[in-house]
């Protein structure tokens, strides 16, 4: 068992991280702090999840969101997708293992992965609407969000959702407000089986290694850690019993990365585009300097007068 995050003191404490710890800020350049904070991570052990949705309830309660009462369409997923009011969602998959012919009930807690290289932040046009702290947390700052939806296009995991009420984007904050005062995320606190644990990233990797050894000894030869390198690693990681095929867990992407289309849009297009516009303007200016204005001459006017039958000028 991984020791849970202890309850903090009841005395007010200053936040452990803040604006001075930003390593990335959308549509802005920041000077990263000299000292990076210890990276934190949440580890979700899919093999230990019982699908009770306590994490969802805890998330709703802590973040004070009010998801709409849904309808039952014959599946366990509730609500049916992430929403601006539901930052985390248990996704249930009934998977038949072709090797054993056993039905496996795969339950994955979906939500923001807190990528080390966040696609949402890269795509965001609003200064300071998306920030990344040096401990790895990627957070949305709602007062700076303009609701354009570019983060949705940037995200390799299809996580952010735009509220039709506030017209700003929402996702899991990793409970940055709780972590700032020494607590763990609400979902981890509520999880009855320790399928969700929270600590430093190194601790989580170490804990995961123990779990993977245990799973392998129980016949899950492909058990492994999901910490995808394509996005520089994540600060929410999974222990999967079938780590060789993450896509069976309700479409968890195998080797996710920021879409090359988004990279092209936010990379070469941005610079080449302004260069092309600047070149067009400069070419016009240079042409005017060299060639001068193209003026209608007196002879042109006389020719037109002659054509229309006017008497020639004296």
């Amino acid at each position: 068992m991984f020791p849970p995050v202890p309850n903090p003191t009841t005395q007010p404490v200053p936040p452990k991280f803040g604006d001075q710890d930003l390593i990335r800020r959308s549509a802005s350049t920041v000077t990263p702090p000299a000292q990076r904070q210890t990276e934190v991570a949440k580890l979700i052990d899919v093999s230990k999840c019982i699908g009770c949705k306590a994490c969802q309830s805890a998330c709703i309660e802590w973040n004070d969101t009010h998801p709409e009462i849904g309808i039952n369409t014959g599946v366990y997923d509730n609500p049916h997708d992430l929403t601006p009011d539901m930052f985390t969602l248990m996704r249930f998959t009934e998977w038949e293992n072709p090797e054993t012919n056993n039905l496996e009930w795969l339950i994955r807690k979906d939500g923001c992965m807190h990528c080390e290289d966040p696609g949402c932040l890269k795509a965001c046009p609003a200064p300071g609407a998306i920030v990344q702290y040096s401990n790895g947390i990627v957070d949305f700052i709602h007062e700076n969000c303009i609701g354009c939806g570019y983060c949705i296009k940037g995200c390799p995991f299809n996580i952010p959702r735009i509220s039709q009420v506030t017209h700003t984007a929402y996702k899991c904050t990793l409970c940055s407000d709780r972590i700032a005062v020494g607590q763990g995320p609400a979902c981890a606190k509520a999880c009855p089986t320790q399928a969700i644990v929270f600590g430093t990233k190194d601790e989580m990797k170490e804990h995961a290694a123990g779990r993977i050894t245990d799973l392998k000894s129980r016949g899950f030869a492909n058990a492994g850690l999901y910490d995808p390198p394509g996005v520089g690693g994540t600060h929410v990681m999974y222990v999967l019993h079938h780590a060789d095929k993450p896509e069976i867990y309700a479409g968890l992407p195998n080797n996710p990365r920021i879409s090359p289309i988004v990279e092209a849009w936010k990379g070469v297009t941005k610079y080449a585009g302004l260069a092309v516009i600047g070149f067009a303007a400069a070419a016009g200016f240079m042409h005017y300097l060299v060639a001068g204005p193209n003026r209608v001459s007196e002879e042109d006017e006389e020719a037109a007068e002659k054509l229309t039958g006017e008497e020639p000028r004296p």
């Binding site: 005017y288 042109d300 006017e301 054509l307």
Partner: peptide, 20 residues
């Protein structure tokens, strides 16, 4: 650059010389 053009879109007309 081409003098006498803008009045085509402001006053609506150009001079005969411009058209020629």
């Amino acid at each position: 650059w081409v003098r006498g053009t803008i009045r085509a879109m402001t006053r609506g007309s150009v001079t005969g010389g411009w058209a020629w």
